[in-house]
């Protein structure tokens, strides 16, 4: 049993599937090509707040390869990273650099403090991080020996003491400034 307008339906179906494939392959909504790439832009705009650092080559690496990576800064602001990210929020233990770097590449900001930071100062930083639940990853970092380091993609701001006004300026200016794409 065949439909009287079967060829019209076939042509319409092929066009619809073709449009869907074209949408994910070319043009402004292209996602698939970007999703399979692991190379970030090497020349994002300079940082509005803090120090602008050169962007390292930033491929995806495995967990086993992470121990051999040497970043250009401590804490890192770019470089090799895992193909996974980390949920913005407060972490009580340190988070692997390769995860933090991926979060930075996706537009997040990290608030990384020295492990020996007094609890009351950690409390004030936590209150700050809680007010930015979509943008800030906060965790202790073994490479921060004193004070606090705020990092974004290619951006670093060191503070000897946590200052909420400066931190707020950094987050509002840097978070989402460079967003690489979800799966790179």
């Amino acid at each position: 049993m065949t439909h009287p307008h079967r060829w019209w339906w076939r042509i319409a179906t092929v066009l619809a599937v073709g449009a869907a494939v074209a949408t994910v392959s070319v043009g402004p909504w292209r996602v698939y090509g970007r999703a399979t790439s692991a190379t970030a832009d090497t020349d994002p705009p300079s940082c509005p707040v803090g120090e602008t650092l050169p962007i390292m080559d930033s491929p995806h690496i495995s967990q086993a390869e992470a121990s051999d990576v040497r970043y250009s800064s401590e804490p890192p602001t770019s470089g090799p990273h895992f193909p996974f990210t980390v949920t913005p929020g407060v972490y009580e233990d340190s988070v692997p650099d390769a995860l933090i770097v991926q979060a930075l590449e996706l537009g997040d900001v990290a608030v990384l403090y020295a492990p020996a930071t007094p609890p009351d100062l950690i409390g004030s930083m936590r209150r700050f991080a809680r007010t930015h639940p979509a943008d800030v990853v906060m965790a202790p970092h073994p490479g921060v020996h004193k004070g606090v380091a705020l990092t974004g993609w290619g951006c670093l701001l060191r503070m000897s003491m946590f200052d909420e006004a400066t931190a707020t300026l950094f987050v509002t200016q840097v978070a989402g400034r460079y967003v690489h794409g979800w799966a790179r």
Binding site: A20, V21, V31, Y32, S62, A64, F84
Partner: peptide
């Protein structure tokens, strides 16, 4: 089909490669 191409396939490939590298290394 779009969701499989955009999300499922890249996720499958990247995660599969990652865990395979771990299984070989650890």
């Amino acid at each position: 089909l779009w969701a499989i191409l955009i999300f499922a396939l890249p996720f499958l490939l990247s995660t599969g490669a990652w865990v395979s590298a771990n299984l070989a290394a650890y």
